[in-house]
């Protein structure tokens, strides 16, 4: 069997039993968190779950092309989900972390803007290279007309390819995905930071000002870890590549919501346990 035919055929079908098991796991983790750290810890965990779901949902918007896109045979940015989501999410996280002192609303939006900006620059430079460097127009292979501009796609698409370049809808999807991912990453960071700032001084027996570097670094590395876990799980959901919100694979997002919620709850719970026991 050739390598092409052997690509995973993980279809769009839902597995209802597994979804129910996932929701039950989520409730169990929430109950455990309420048991070990009611109040602050539970609030932090809920924030982490919302952030994780935002990351998982946002990653579906990002036009990920993978290796075929690097050869101009498929639309999207020519790298994997993990790299793109990490780039956008970390750019957003750094942006949001600077604004952490301004309250969580401003910080989360700043994080979202940072992630969206990073994706906008990436998408623009990718299209620059596609159009002026490789000499190929932008055309989608999945839809006949661009859902936003209404431009027809078929006459620009080369034979034997699935489309190429970044059509307008993919660009918009990329920016939306970057915004959601950056905001989600920042939300996780803020929740962990406020929890650690409150709990670590008594735990370690040092003044609050001294504990700041530990709280910032631990919250930051956990936010990065959670971000990568959610991004890779979403990558598994779309089996590697997606064109953007108009791609049929986009309809698989409910699975990713459950998966991201359970994964974020699990990892977030372990991160909360560090200060709870």
């Amino acid at each position: 069997m050739s390598a092409v035919a052997a690509k995973p055929q993980a279809g769009g079908a839902m597995n209802p039993t597994a979804m129910v098991v996932g929701v039950i796991m989520l409730l169990i983790i929430l109950a455990l968190c309420w048991y070990v750290s009611p109040g602050l810890g539970l609030m932090a965990l809920i924030g982490i779950i919302i952030g994780g779901v935002l990351i998982g949902f946002g990653t579906h918007f990002v036009p990920v092309g993978g290796a075929p896109a690097a050869m101009g045979q498929a639309p999207g940015i020519a790298t994997g989900v993990a790299m793109l989501a990490a780039g956008a999410g970390l750019a957003g996280l750094f942006g949001g972390a600077w604004a952490a002192g301004q309250g969580w609303v401003i910080a989360t939006i700043t994080g979202g803007v940072g992630g969206g900006l990073m994706m906008a620059i990436t998408c623009m430079m990718v299209n620059f290279i596609y159009v002026f460097g490789m000499g190929i127009p932008s055309a989608s292979g999945k839809v006949a007309k661009d859902p936003i501009t209404g431009d027809t796609q078929a006459e620009f698409k080369s034979q034997g390819t699935e489309g190429h370049g970044l059509p307008f809808v993919s660009f918009v999807g990329g920016v939306t995905g970057g915004f959601l991912g950056g905001a989600g990453g920042t939300l996780i960071y803020l929740q962990l930071l406020s929890l650690y700032e409150t709990k670590l001084p008594t735990l370690m027996g040092v003044p609050a000002a001294q504990v700041m570097p530990i709280a910032v670094a631990a919250a930051g590395i956990f936010a990065v870890g959670l971000f990568l876990v959610n991004a890779v799980l979403t990558a598994y959901n779309i089996t590697g590549t997606i064109e953007g919100p108009h791609d049929p694979k986009f309809k698989r997002w409910p699975r990713a919501i459950v998966a991201s919620a359970v994964a974020s709850a699990l990892c977030g719970f372990v991160a909360i346990l560090i200060v709870a026991i």
């Binding site: 390598a3 994997g80 989900v81 790299m83 990490a86 890779v232 990558a235 598994y236 089996t239 590697g240």
Partner: peptide, 12 residues
Amino acid sequence: GIGTGVPSAGMI
């Protein structure tokens, strides 16, 4: 052939 590239495995 999980379709997501090898680096994602290291990241997770």
